[in-house]
Design a protein around this nucleic acid. Structure first.
Length: 596
RNA sequence: GGACCCGUAGCUCAGCUGGAUAGAGCGUUGCCCUCCGAAGGCAAAGGUCGCGCGUUCGAAUCGCGCCGGGUCCGCCA
């Protein structure tokens, strides 16, 4: 027996059906699954084995189902096995099989649900990777939370996960940042230039006018005096100061970003600098690899159909043969002036990961990069040659923040965009993380500030935390009753559970038992949001049982006159708390002991 | 013009990679507190799964074509 009851049952079914039909092909066996039933009338679990086996065997599904059901009925713990519908076999297990799950959970603790699915394979998950030009916004936040939770999920599913942040510290955005910081520096010195005069004196304009750069100007002035400025605090030759200001600014911005990530409990193992990658010859290595395969050439792209820019003119560029790998057009890796595009640097980034031993890579991107997916995957396939390297992209769609039912507009230019720090201040990191994980990442979401702090069932964070707090509350109360003995998790793991037979109790246990199965399915699909929905359903089962005790006295958790059954129920409560904590840990949310 | 994402109850969304009579919450209607926290629970009403073909034992799910919303489309990252 493993932690995963569904995996064990699947092996049981595979054993049984191959004993009946030894010729069944392995690829058919692979598609056989065990699913929880939706309705109690269909037993505890169902298998599609007969439906799958019908075609290769040339038999009617119902005939196989009959034979399979009869054979399964002879196995341990199977109390009912009935063919149903087009050829399902519905199984009902002895309560003891479910009760044993509670002991498994209490023995495993929060590690319950951990899987060997990944077999220790190395996976690189890259997320956030925002330009270091300012604090993180709620737009970045979703990717940060999704990436972090996905990394947790894959680690739980048995992968060797590396969490990576790719710092886009090369290129025009960072130059523009340096100019904007330089403006604050001149202001700190007391320049008489106006903002408009400065903007016209720069090649980039003043792209980042936000107040958050003011302290940087002051720090530069304190450190360098007027040594970086021209006469009368005017703009000096960039050769004198640009490198200094740029590296200072990037360092300061990354400090801001790291602070935001820390406030959100998002962590990374590796921060890779784009600039350092370039300086280390990464792009040249990637270019050599692609040239060796004949995948780069000099050419001229057609203008985009139906949307020709007014200033469009044909220019020769270095192009990557992305169309060889399923992309729509070949993609430029060099601009017409000969400098590298961001794409070329990002190819080098992924080549670098592959050189570090990552065959499996996952990038979490914003929806505005959707048009970029095919070319990056094409590049990875090109670099891999005949290798097995694979890049999955998780796209996170737009987040709209609602306040009083009205969307708050995000405009970086106007300086009114919503900073992540503001959101965390408003509702706390756990609420932010939980709500960000209550949507499929590829669906747009609305973040309703009012609902996020509401203490009702419509707020999933509250509802799940409330369930955990109730569990802890019961266990605290039990700990003060000496007749109940040792009510620690370890102590309760020795309880006799045979009294747990009520439908509400078994429903809760069935949900708990599905946790390992859910981890594997979510990891395969790369969908962290399934954890949140599972916990919401689990909380619903627990609250239902709690409330059933109001009308049915025998279901109340603590009954001093019956210490035996009470200990059994306490074991169930403790196991529920364990699984909630296990799930919250994957989401990166701290469980609460009591509601305040 | 093209690529990608979305379209499921009045509203906000799930639907476990093709399974049985499509599910939650909010809202509406009606119930349940001398009792471990009612910050909760139970029940009812509410659906041509955007539309149309196709694939097969079987489709909300897969394919194709439309319709609507979003993101984007060399010289930004």
């Amino acid at each position: 027996m493993s932690d995963n009851l569904f995996a064990d049952l699947r092996i049981l079914v595979l054993d049984t059906i191959t004993a009946l039909y030894p010729d069944l092909a392995p690829d058919a066996l692979a598609r056989i699954e065990i699913t929880p039933t939706r309705e109690a009338a269909h037993g505890d679990v169902a298998t599609n084995a007969a439906l799958i086996a019908a075609k290769p065997l040339g038999l009617k599904p119902r005939a196989i189902a009959d034979a399979l059901a009869a054979a399964l009925l002879t196995r341990a713990f199977v109390t009912k096995a009935e063919p149903a519908g087009p050829g399902f076999v519905n199984l009902t297990l002895a309560p003891a099989a479910w009760q044993a799950q509670i002991l498994t959970i209490l023995h495993s603790g929060e590690a319950f649900g951990a899987s060997k699915l990944g077999q220790g394979a190395k996976v690189n998950v890259e997320y956030v990777s925002a330009n270091p030009t300012g604090p993180l916004t709620v737009g970045h936040c979703r990717g940060a939370v999704v990436g972090d939770a996905l990394a947790n999920l894959l680690a739980k599913a048995g992968y060797d996960v590396t969490r990576e942040y790719y710092i886009n510290d090369a290129g025009a955005q960072v130059i523009a940042l340096a100019w904007s910081v330089y403006w604050r520096y001149l202001q700190a010195l007391g320049t008489t230039m106006t903002e408009a005069e400065f903007a016209t004196a720069t090649p980039t304009g003043l792209q980042y006018p936000g107040d958050y750069l003011v302290p940087l100007g002051a720090q530069l002035a304190a450190a360098h005096g007027d040594a970086l400025s021209g006469p009368g605090f005017t703009v000096a030759d960039p050769a004198l100061w640009l490198d200094i200001v740029r590296s200072f600014a990037v360092t300061a911005m990354m400090d801001l970003v790291r602070a935001d990530l820390a406030a959100l409990n998002v962590r990374h193992d590796v921060f890779t600098s784009e600039a350092a990658l370039i300086a280390g010859g990464g792009v040249e290595r990637a270019e050599a690899a692609l040239r060796a395969r004949g995948l780069l050439y000099e050419g001229i792209l057609e203008p985009p159909k139906g949307k020709t820019p007014e200033d469009w003119e044909p220019r020769e560029q270095t192009l990557f043969r992305a169309t060889d790998f399923g992309d729509d057009v070949d993609r430029p890796v060099r601009k017409s002036d000969g400098s590298n595009t961001y794409f070329f640097n990002d190819i080098a980034n992924h080549a670098n990961k592959m050189a570090r031993g990552f065959d499996q890579m996952i990038d979490v991107w914003g929806a505005d990069h959707g048009g970029y997916v095919k070319r990056m995957q094409s590049a990875v396939r090109a670099l891999a040659g005949n290798g097995a390297a694979q890049l999955d992209i998780v796209l996170c769609q737009i987040v709209r923040v609602l306040k009083d039912g009205v969307p708050m507009r995000m405009s970086k230019r106007a300086g009114t965009y919503i900073e992540l720090a503001d959101l965390i201040d408003a509702v706390g990191p756990d609420v932010v993380r939980f709500i960000m994980l209550m949507r499929k990442s590829d669906a747009q979401m609305e973040f309703d500030l009012d609902a996020a702090v509401a203490q009702t069932r419509e707020n999933p964070v509250f509802y799940v935390q409330y369930a955990h707090a109730r569990c802890r509350s019961v266990l605290r109360a039990a700990a003060t009753t000496s007749e109940l003995g040792d009510t620690s998790d370890a102590g309760l793991a020795a309880a006799d559970l045979a009294s747990l037979t009520a439908p509400e109790e078994l429903a809760l246990i069935r949900r708990l038992a599905a946790w390992p199965r859910l981890i594997e399915a979510a990891a395969i699909a790369r969908e962290a949001h399934r954890i949140g929905f599972f916990l919401y359903d689990l909380a619903g089962d627990f609250h239902a049982l709690w409330n059933a005790g109001r009308t049915e006295a025998s279901l109340r958790f603590i009954q001093a006159e019956a210490p035996g059954p009470t200990r059994a129920r306490l074991a169930l409560v403790a196991a529920t708390a364990v699984v909630i904590r296990s799930g919250l840990a994957v989401m990166g949310v701290a469980p609460v002991e009591e509601m305040r």
